[in-house]
Structures are given as structure tokens and as C-alpha cells.
Design a protein around this nucleic acid. Sequence first.
DNA 1: AGGAAGCTAAACAGTT
DNA 2: AAACTGTTTAGCTTCC
Length: 678
Amino acid sequence: MFQCVFSSSVLQPHSTSCLFKHLFYHSATPASQKQPEPIYSKKTEIQRQTVRAHSVKLFIFSALQVARQLLLQQQQQQQVSGLKSPKRNDKQPALQVPVSVAMMTPQVITPQQMQQILQQQVLSPQQLQVLLQQQQALMLQQQQLQEFYKKQQEQLQLQLLQQQHAGKQPKEQPQVATQQLAFQQQLLQMQQLQQQHLLSLQRQGLLTIQPGQPALPLQPLAQGMIPTELQQLWKEVTSAHSAEETTGSNHSSLDLTTTCVSSSAPSKTSLIMNPHASTNGQLSVHAPKRESLSHEEHPHSHPLYGHGVCKWPGCEAVCEDFQSFLKHLNSEHALDDRSTAQCRVQMQVVQQLELQLAKDKERLQAMMTHLHVKSTEPKAAPQPLNLVSSVTLSKSASEASPQSLPHTPTTPTAPITPVTQGPSVITTTSMHTVGPIRRRYSDKYNVPISSDIAQNQEFYKNAEVRPPFTYASLIRQAILESPEKQLTLNEIYNWFTRMFAYFRRNAATWKNAVRHNLSLHKCFVRVENVKGAVWTVDEVEFQKRRPQKISGNPSLIKNMQSSHAYCTPLNAALQASMAENSIPLYTTASMGNPTLGNLASAIREELNGAMEHTNSNESDSSPGRSPMQAVHPVHVKEEPLDPEEAEGPLSLVTTANHSPDFDHDRDYEDEPVNEDME
DNA sequence: AGGAAGCTAAACAGTT
DNA sequence: AAACTGTTTAGCTTCC
């Protein structure tokens, strides 16, 4: 594809990257300058890029102008201060200049940056040559500037010394200092110019569509960018629109279809059409498909149209109705340079998110692999957390949890735990196993259900995650939370639906279960009232229920105790990781969805429970098992442990990576949420 | 292996 | 009559 046509070089690099390294070597070599002929050729249509290349040149040129001016000024200053012009040819000036200068090392385009440019930009050989030459000139001038600055500093130090020794020349120092300050500012200015120049180059790369070129090379550019930068790019692209619009809208080179197809993944093609990936920061893999389907089924719903506003990234044009939106879409977002560029940016946004996801997946996998070193479950391939979207909702999926993770008998099932198996596993192996979830937290163990619920309130409210507590425990909690410690059945219902998104579905099922539990358990006492009847809790009866013992091993217990120490850092690390990668989906602040906190809390309570039971039972066990086999501590409560609340079984199970789409085996009647909020 | 616990489903009756 | 409330039974799974 690419071929270096350097006279002294025979190279057929397999990639632009390879080519660039080769190229850069030549450009940095004086001998390369004697080669005015095209040094880079590509079998694509080049002329169409002329306009963009021209703007690149403009940027470089302006940078050059500034550099020349700076040099001129410095020379003038030099003459004033009676200094010689720096002519010394230092090979590594940066190493010898003062730190302050070294930190401002001029940002000559690095090979990596140039590589990006080459990947994004199809420059004509002449343009490329000019660019390289200009780049070299820039480097040279910056070198001279640095050296001059160094000289000035030396001069200053000399003068200072002279002053100290002789106390003379009291007026010269301020002058030199002022000059230095100005020079530093100039350096900074130049640096900014170069950054601008680089940004421009990047943007040019974004705006350039290269037909026939695989989309893969886009990744290196996107890799280093954070979503905010990509968002910024959106704005820039949008603002650059007016300038580019004059170039016309029928460029055959901008073949979006080709580009998308060349990305080789149909899903990607659909993904780039999903504006939400960038607008809300969520990576929703299924969304585009669904949206496109819904679009077909419901002609008035469009992924790019919502709330009367065009949701085309960076547009936000108000469209009163769907028809006007369609008009707007066809007129403003037709297949032209801008739209194509925006599509590409969107594609990069998605790619970036995917990259981040993959990155964190890998990290998580490594962590879990590390923590499950001794796991006996071979197929427990750790999967990333996807709590909101993949948490189980059906009993069948919930049932899959015990099979998916090797959990000890000491670990009651908790549906809210890291997913250890992908949906495919669930669908194939667990989908058809019907049965209820066993082993939930129960307040008979004094599990701090209240603290868990309180701590993860937002999570439970927003994520359709089944709370890891028994119905009895939840009912008791609901009643105890009430001011009068009594609730009507309907109020209990309301509490369930209010507190847990999970109970906003399948009302017939869980309401029946609630009634069943109220009637079945002696701990729930029905009290006749004037208006009807209310339910109260008989704590004595509640505590009577058979306690379940933990049969952990000493090492397990020991590790569990010590695990409190690493719960916090681990959780912090995870959160930091997610924040670092700017994945709002996982950050509490952005979503109000303390997913991690929830996870962590459940886990921590498992730890608490395990510790408590261990301390009281002195259970026997065999050594050699890490708590992490069953426990995934992520979070530690900030408040000190309450012995009464610290009791409780572990729940370490994972559950539930299950999407609602798998709920086809049951016909739930989804009742609307009873919004009888208090 | 058997019992306890828990969940779901369902039938049924009484009340609103 | 329908919906709601409350009780009871049955079947199932998991854990001890």
C-alpha cells in the first residue's frame, strides 16, 4: 500500500506507522534534504486533500512566522544587552538548558504525532515535503531559542555574581530579568501555537475521509483521547463547519459507506449512528439495534430525534415535529463533509469508549484472575461488571448464579455481585433452570439490611437488581422504617416499589410473595385498625428463626478479617479506574448510581457476617482457601462496625448477569408502579 | 438423606 | 363484579 520512494531507501512498510518511522529517520537526517522529490506516495486520490493540507501548511507557516519574529526580537534584545548571537550547535540543548526551559521543551511534532497525521491525512508528496521541511525549520529555530535562553540565564547568573561580589550594576539586572520573562512568555506562546498546530493537524485527520483505507488506523488517534477531548472535538468540528461548508457538499472522496463497511463490523456501523454514546456517556451496545428497530416500527421515533430537538451531535436544533425534524435532518445533516466528519468523530467516540471498556475488562479480568487463583471453577471466566444492564430479573437467571461461581456453603446467594459469566453462559446453561433464588440475606442473622439499603439506596432504586434479602427481611425492614412501626399491605407494596427498581416489575409475583410471607411467618403480626389492618413485626419471633451457621475455615476467617483492610483501597481503585477512564456509567457522581458501593457493601457485609459467625462458632475448616474465592470485597463502610449489624451471612455469589430480554419464558404482568409515595 | 428455609405459583375466601 | 387482602397448600431448590 505504502511505499517509501526515498532514493536511498527501499522500504515497503506494511503500515503508515512503519512508514513514518522510516520517514522520520530520513527527515531528521541532513541527507534527506537533498531529496526534494516526493518521499511519500499513496495509491489514493490525493488532490482532494489539498484544501486541508493547505490549512495545515497555514498553521505551520504561522508558527514559523511567530518563530521568526521571536528570533528577531531576541536578536534585537541580544544586541541591546550586548550578547552574541547563539551559534553554537548543540546536539542536545534541552539537556543543558535550565530546568525551567527544559520543562518548556518545544513541542516539535513527535514521531508519534506525525504518525497520526500520516494516518489521518493524505498529503500530497509536495505537501508532505513542505511540512517536513517546515517542521525541521521549527526545530532548528526552537533549538536556537533554547540556546539563547540558556545564554541569557548564564549571563544573568554572571551578573548576579558580579553584583554580589562588587555590588555594581544595580540597574542591569532588572533589565535582563525582564527580558527573560518576556522570552519565557514568547516560548510559551510558541508552545501554544504548536499545540494549536497539532490540534489542527489532528482535526484535519478527523475531518479527512480516506476511501478504501481501513478504519483501524483511527484507533491510535482516539486512544489517547478522553471523552471530554472528543466532545471538544465535536464542538470544533461543528464550528469548523461554516468554514468548510463553502467547499461544497458533494465530495466523492467522503464515502461514509465505504468507511463504515471497511470498519468490518456491522455493529460498529450501527454504533456510529447512535448519538447517545457521546451525549450521555453511556456505552450501550444494544441500543442502536433497538433504536433502529424502533425507528422502523415507530416512524415517529428516531434515534436522532427526541424532545423536539435534533440529537445529532452538536446540533440541538429545535424541530417542532417529526416532519420538520426529517426536513432538518435531510437538509442540515445530508451526506457532506461535515456530516461525514461528525460521523467519524462519533465513531471515534464509540471506539474510544469501547477501548476503555476493553481496557477495564482486561484489568478486571486480571484482577479477578489474580484473586481467583485457586478457584476450582474452571469456567468462571471473569466478566466485567455490568450491573445495570445485565443484572438478573428472573428467577431463572438468578438461579444461574450458584452455578456460575464457586461459592462456599458459607455464602448465601446474593444477586448483587460481580458477574462472573457472560450472558451467553446464562442463556445456554442456566436459562431453563427454573427455581427461586436461595440463600438471601436474612435479618435473622442481623444482617445490616438497613445499612445496605441505605447505603445503596440509589442503586436499588435505579438498577433492576434484586435485593439480596429475603422477603421477610425486606418486609420487616419496611415496617421498621415506618414511623409507627406498622404498615398496611399497600404501604409495604409501596415501600418495595419505591426502594427497589426490581420490584417495579413482576408485581403479581412478588406481591403474592409478600402476602405469603406476611401470613406465613409468625413474626409478622396483623393488627386490626380502624381503617383496616396493619402489619407489625414481632422481633422475638423474627429472631427465633433458625440461624444458619457459617462453616468457614480459619484461614478464611482470618483473611476475611484482614480483608477489611483492602476492601477500601480496592473499591477506591476501582472507582478511580472508572473515573480515570471517564466512564460515567460507573461513577456515582454522574449517575447517582452507586453501583460499586452497592457491590462493595454487599460484599463487605458478607465479610462482616463471616467474621461474626466465625468468631462465635469457631468453625472448623480446611486451610488453603482464600476468601476471595467466594468473596469479592469492594467496599467498606465508613462507619465503624456495629457488632449487631455486622452479623450476617456472606453472600458471594454472583448472579445474575441477565438481561430482561431473556425473560421470555415467563409472562410477567408488568404493573405500573404504585406511586403512592409517602 | 432429611429437614429447614426460601421462593414461586396458585387456589380460595373474605373484604372493600 | 372486580380488585384487594389474607390464608393456605404445593412444588421446587438450596443449605445445613
